[in-house]
């Protein structure tokens, strides 16, 4: 646990702005997560009346699309956070 700390001079204003953008991004992504998981599950029966290549949409959201969206969301978050870190001088 004795890792070398490289302290960075970051102003309070930048630090607060960084946190605010982080929280904003997280909130948006959680909203997507909520809709993809819970709202879609509740509507699965209705969505099942549409199908593509035989795939009923309600079922396929649970078995395929939701999983792909989760993964893309995490990579997107990592990518956006890197940009936000750089913007406020907190690049590692």
């Amino acid at each position: 646990m004795t890792e070398e700390n490289n302290y960075r001079a970051v102003t309070q204003v930048d630090a607060d702005a960084h946190w605010k953008e982080n929280v904003g991004l997280v909130s948006w992504l959680l909203l997507v997560w909520f809709v993809v998981t819970w709202v879609v599950a509740l509507l699965a029966n209705q969505l099942n009346s549409f199908s593509i290549l035989g795939f009923p949409m309600g079922y396929t959201f649970g078995s395929l699309f939701a999983l792909l969206i989760y993964t893309v969301m995490i990579f997107y978050y990592a990518h956006r956070m890197e940009q936000i870190d750089a913007k406020y001088g907190m690049k590692e």
């Binding site: 959680l30 997560w33 998981t37 995490i74």
Partner: peptide
């Protein structure tokens, strides 16, 4: 369909893990 709960649960948790 109900079995998909395992699939969604065991993957969607990673979103919470990554973000929070």
């Amino acid at each position: 369909y109900d079995g998909l709960a395992y699939i969604m649960g065991w993957t969607g948790g990673y979103v919470l893990l990554a973000l929070l």
